[in-house]
Design a protein around this nucleic acid. Structure first.
Lengths: 103, 103
DNA sequence: TACAAACATAATTAAATGATTATATATTAA
DNA sequence: TTAATATATAATCATTTAATTATGTTTGTA
């Protein structure tokens, strides 16, 4: 797959409001699925499916912490994704209440 | 429509290899439909449909020059689109032969 | 060990999307 | 005015996609 194709595949992933918001949230801090379900008010399987796509594209990575699986950004090597996320409106206020506890 | 939604709509448009290439080509110079048909080796209606989407999202504008309709970028007010296109692999070699004539 | 919680996966469905085919419109040239 | 060229639009079709529903897997806990 050529580079332009790869870029368009990534933009396709950003081309969904839910996923774009998830990535913007993860730019603030790592989060587990239950956080995302709560913040975005969507079903758990729906969030999981989005995370699977993001993960298989290499945009996020996961870390299990006991019962919870935390997702974080994995875009060091994708400067254009970083730039894209820098332009997404702030989501910090959506996230602050989750700083210390899980669901 | 909120700003994040708008951004995701734009990324959805970039999330197609044909359209991403068209935008990269237009970054080099304005082009008419017949150029794009020729360069991308796709059907005229197909290109026209893509141009309609790009135009209705405000990413390109058109100028009629006699028989031909030239498209050009219209992204002065969309810095994140400019940044995105700066990272698309160069398409200059695809375009050079069209500098002076039309189809 | 048994149960509950967190998450993933699979199957299904409805809607959106890209491409094709056919046709219409507008401009230029004979 | 007729024909040809460039482009747009409409209709159709196959594929993809987001979401839901149902079920499976793993981890922690009673």
């Amino acid at each position: 797959m050529d580079a332009t194709q790869e870029m368009s595949e990534v933009y396709k992933l950003l081309g969904d409001k839910t996923r774009l918001t998830i990535l913007a949230l993860l730019r603030v801090q790592e989060l587990c699925v239950c956080h995302l379900v709560d913040i975005l008010d969507m079903s758990q399987p729906n969030i999981s499916q989005h995370m699977r796509k993001l993960k298989s594209a290499g945009l996020v990575k996961e870390t299990r912490k006991g019962q919870w699986i935390y997702y974080s950004l994995n875009i060091q090597d994708k400067p254009y994704v970083r730039l894209a996320l820098e332009h997404v409106p702030s989501v910090k206020e959506k996230i602050e209440k989750y700083n210390s506890h899980c669901c």
